[in-house]
Every structure is written in structure tokens, then in C-alpha cells.
Nucleic acid binder design. Sequence first.
DNA 1: GCATGATCATGC
DNA 2: GCATGATCATGC
Length: 452
Amino acid sequence: MHKHGDYDITNPESIEAYARRLVGRSLREVLPSDARTMYQSGRGKGNLGDLVEQEYFGIHPGNISAPDFIEAGVELKTTPLKRVGKSFRAKERLVLQMIKYNDVHKEDWEHSTFLAKNSLLLLMFYLWESGFAPIDYVFKIARLWSFPEADLEIIRDDWETIVGKIRDGRAHELSERDTRYLAACTKAATGAVLRSQPFCEQDAQPRAFSLKSSYMNFVIDESMRAQSAVTAEELRAGKTLEQLIHERFMPFVGMTADQIAREVGVTANRNAKNYYSVLTNRMLKPILGIAPDREVAEFEKAGITMRTMRLKPGGTPKEAVSFKAFDYMDLVSQEWTTSDLREELMRRFFFVVYNLDRNDVPTLARTQFWSMPQRDVDGPGRDCFERTVALIKEDKAEYLPRSTENKVCHVRPHGRDASDKLLTPSGRWVTRKSFWLNQRYLGDQLAGGEDS
DNA sequence: GCATGATCATGC
DNA sequence: GCATGATCATGC
């Protein structure tokens, strides 16, 4: 028996595809009514993980040392997200398996039960909402996850640290602070029955291997990014939102901005600095056949940042791209991993690209989706952020990173005029500023893209 | 010609 | 009234 209903139990991708059907929905919306009634209103509370396994996938994994989908080697994990502002964060750490103090010390990493069970995870994130029954939580992410090699190195170190402590007879001293990604989190309430350990008389708290929340946040960011291309419903004939958008712009490619304005009925002042953003919005309007102005919301929902880009005759961008101005006080209180800047850099960008001719007449050249490579986000992007924070703290808010100092971005004034100032932590008023993407960097990045 | 500082028209 | 995305202006 290889098949189970709508998926192939031996094939990870098939299982993932079936899991993805839950994204954007709750179990109540997809389960047959007889299965639903059991779990309504508190009764049969069961945790959501069990519900998904039994009612959605129809599996009853009893074996705790092998993956849930044995034939495919896939371990299913259902785990909550919480909303923080516009983005999602892990509501809790992800518990992978109990640590058996009396067995694990005999294992080596390559042959560990940890690896056997957790090498390929099917992660299903749902949005936790206070007061909801589990059956009503809406799933946001469903994806296969295998650890990137670099991460696995660290997880291995962490595993060795934890197991090493057990071998040293110090299981009772385990702490989540010992490790970076993989932690030995306490399991069961405080005061629960303690467990024996092999090399020490003293009993230890029950603990489980778990992925820290901070690591899960990284997984979430990555997943939202990967998924944003196809979120917002793969409407109509299985086309992605991105395909639909490209197609929408196609008829305008080759037209000058003036011609486009006439075509879509824009009469706004050509000198208005939001002229191109008005044009783009109007070109997008009829997309998806939804109510006017909804398309912008669709963009938002998919986490897409829309920008105009004008290329000079040589093909380099005429201008850098700005983000909203920051508040000095707020900025210095931010950590890189959760910073506004990182969130902005991690978003998917949609560029509407115009070519300028020698007379500066803009012609729509193409549209292009783009995401900043991860190494640039957490490399130069991070440097720029941390340098900026450090300089502000040193009372040098006038001397923030320039475009010549950083490959990816820089800081520049961004206010009403030179008198538009904000308070710094040192108590001085300094020109309002923001982060900007370097135009040279953008030129290099977008040159490779041949979209639409 | 580019990097950086300065400013603007509009929408909310 | 002001933040935003965008562009202009200047100095090196």
C-alpha cells in the first residue's frame, strides 16, 4: 500500500504538496463534517498536531524513534506562529524528541536517533490566535525542511555539547544557554517526576531536543520568502501572482510613460514625485478582477515591495531606492535579527523598470521580481545596520555609512527639508534620515534578471 | 559622473 | 499635517 488518498506516502514532495493544500485554511474548512464535530468547542481538544496527523493525513504514528512517514523519511511537525506587527514569529520553540539520558550517550552523531528522525521535517506553521479552538487555526506555511549544511554543523556541535554533558554525568545541569540552535529544553511542568541519568546518582529534569525560537524565526523568514512567490492564491489556471502581474504589464512594455498615462487615464502632474507609483497602481488595477485598490493589499499580503526604477542609457539606475525614514531613538533599540531594516531587505521586491533615452524620456522596459541574496542581507546589510546604530550611539549621527563604504546600502537624509530633524539618544536634533539601497548594487543585481 | 545632501507632490 | 516614494541639485 503506497497511496493514501491524495498523496503518495513514499514520496516527500507528494506529501508536501498535499500539506500545502492546508495553507490559508483551517482544519475545519477541509475536514469532512463527521470528523469535525468531534473536535468542536473544546471537546476532543487534542493538540493540533494529532489532529493533522490523524484526520488530515490519516496516519497513526506510534513509533517514536522513526519519522512519522516512515517510507518517505519525513517527520511531521505542527507548530504555532504569532503575529508581531506585520510579520510572523515563532510562538514557541520546536520540540523534536525527548532526550533519553540512558540511551543517547551510547550514540554517535551520524547514527543518532536524532538524525534518523529529524533529517527531513515537514513543517506546518499555523497562526495561533487567542480564544480559537485548534480546529480553527489557519495554516500559513507548509514545507519540507532539511537543515542547510552550515546549520547542521552547528546543530551537530549543539548535540555533542548536550550529549557530552550527559556523558559527564551532568544531565541535571543541562541548560538552553549551552547551545546555539539545538537546545535541551525542559519538558513537562516543573515538579514533574525527574529522570535518572547514567553517570550520576542525581536525577535530572526531563528534557527534549528542540530548535530555539530564534532559529525557528529564521526558518519562518525563509519560508515566507520562498512562499511569497506563490502565496496570494495560485489563482486561475494555476498561475502564480507573479505571473499574473508580469502578464498585466506586458501590453505596456515599450510605451513611454506619457503613453501609459493616457492609456490608463492618469492625468496627474508629470512632475509629481509619486507619478510612477500612480502609473504602476493604475496598470495593476484590473489584475485578478478584484475590487479597486485590493491589488495593493494583495501585494502587501504577499510581502512585496513595489518600486520604480529608471535606467540611464548605459543601463545603470538613475537613483538609489529609499526606505522610510527611521527614528534615531527607536533604531538604537533594535536588534539586527528583528530590525525593521532586515525585514525590509528580506521582502520580495517588484521593480517596474523604465529605460531613459538621451532626452530623458522614460519607456517601460520590463517588470522584475527580485529578492536580495541572503548573504547580502546578513552580510553588508547587517554591517550597515550595526555601524549605523554604533555611530548614533557614539553621537556621530551626521556620519552614517555612505554608499562607498557598503556594497548594499547606505544612509542619507530623508526629510521634508534640512530643518526636518529628529532627536538622537545624545539629546541632539539631527536631520531625518533613512536607509537607501545603493544604485550601483541594484544595477548589478537587476542586470542579471531577464523577467518579463 | 557620481555620491551625497536636499527637497517635493501627493495620499492618507 | 506629515510620511512616503521619488527626484532634483550641488559639490567634488
